[in-house]
Design a protein around this nucleic acid. Structure first.
Lengths: 207, 207
DNA sequence: CTACCATTCAAACGATCGTTTGACGCGACG
DNA sequence: CGTCGCGTCAAACGATCGTTTGAATGGTAG
């Protein structure tokens, strides 16, 4: 059952197609006419259901980010509750929910790319939206990391977490200039990518 | 002396301003009218001097990437010539030229952001241009890494190098959701970022 | 001075952008 | 049956996009 199936509502088809096209061409690179044509809906449907293109972009995030961050906070709580938990546990709480979300639906993989794109976009409006709605998640993780890394002051810690977040996000998004021939075991590749990245990040944070 | 100084030619002012605006708003997000207005030149000057917007984008890359990759290949040759050279030496040959370029001119820092943006853009035309003109550099580095990592087959090696390249590029570009308050020692921050990233990458590649 | 060439300029081109409009189909409800 | 509201539709809005045009400009060579 594809995203343009008539079994999906107009609103849901728009969200699914927009997620995919934003991942491919960026937010300003994908036009509403491309989106509505691919979703086989009328052009005006976007402004009817979402109000504007910017609101559509926000909704693309909200649809998946709410659940993603809920899972992240649950995993973080489970990790920090365990006495003697390690840095790798906190890192995994941040990364594994994104990995799982990227595998459990067709649009999940596209959404991780959208997330990575948002990270690269310096658009102030989009950054403010993400900061306002999901900044508390980053702050909770920063606190958990800080407790495990008492030798780092706050500025140093945030600076390194920024690097780690960028590396993790972009590796998850599978961006890259080199094309892989066989995508047969993409899931296991992704799984191993996460493991390696956690090692990367843990080593760099501890130093 | 600013980039819009009359001491710079029209062509050079366009290149400098375009580099900065592409870094801020992306290639499709920055219009030629914004570029020419900021550079204080006529709108038609872009098509007169470069032929098209796409050609301008290519020229923004070519202007700095030629020298960057020449420095990278020189550093790589120096690193591999040394007997008993380590993985960190090859990584540094890849990263340090970008670091130096980002500090020796006002536009250099912007260009590193442009480079990172190109990495995220999935635009097929741009990727082909970069692959055609600078693919040999990546291939030489891949060979040098492969010689140091004989336990990895070619596909595995390329897959990991992709991750490493993404992490390094984005950290260099200073993307991030968390704003730092004091940019007083940005250069030393960047320097230390590179050191940490090399450790990250070396640990992950060796595993 | 004249002729020429490179460059700059205002203006306009057609295309495409996000958005708005008003009519239309149609099931729900009194 | 009438009507009300939700969703969809074709069409058009003004704005902005990349690009092109043709005239004006200014320096240089014959």
């Amino acid at each position: 059952m594809r995203e343009n199936s008539p079994n999906f509502s107009t609103r849901e088809r728009i969200l699914g197609v927009a997620e995919s096209l934003f991942a491919q061409h960026g937010f300003s690179g994908a036009s509403l006419r491309q989106v509505t044509a691919a979703a086989k809906v009328n052009l005006a449907a976007v402004n009817y259901h979402f109000g504007s293109k910017d609101s559509l972009i926000e909704e693309v995030f909200r649809r998946r980010l709410d659940e993603l961050n809920r899972r992240r906070l649950d995993a973080l709580a489970a990790a920090t509750a365990k006495p003697g938990h390690r840095l790798e546990d906190v890192l995994e709480a941040f990364v594994r929910p994104a990995l799982e979300q990227s595998m459990d639906s067709a649009g999940g993989a596209a959404f991780v790319r959208v997330l990575a794109r948002a990270y690269a976009e310096h658009d102030e409006r989009l950054r403010r939206f993400l900061s306002d709605n999901y900044g508390h998640v980053l702050r909770e993780f920063a606190a958990a990391f800080g407790a495990l890394l008492p030798h780092l002051d706050k500025e140093e810690l945030y600076w390194r977490l920024d690097i780690v977040a960028g590396a993790l996000t972009y590796a998850m998004a599978d961006f890259g200039v080199i094309k892989r021939k066989h995508d047969v075991s993409e899931h296991s590749h992704r799984e191993r990518t996460v493991e390696h990245l956690i090692r990367f990040a843990a080593a760099g944070l501890r130093e």
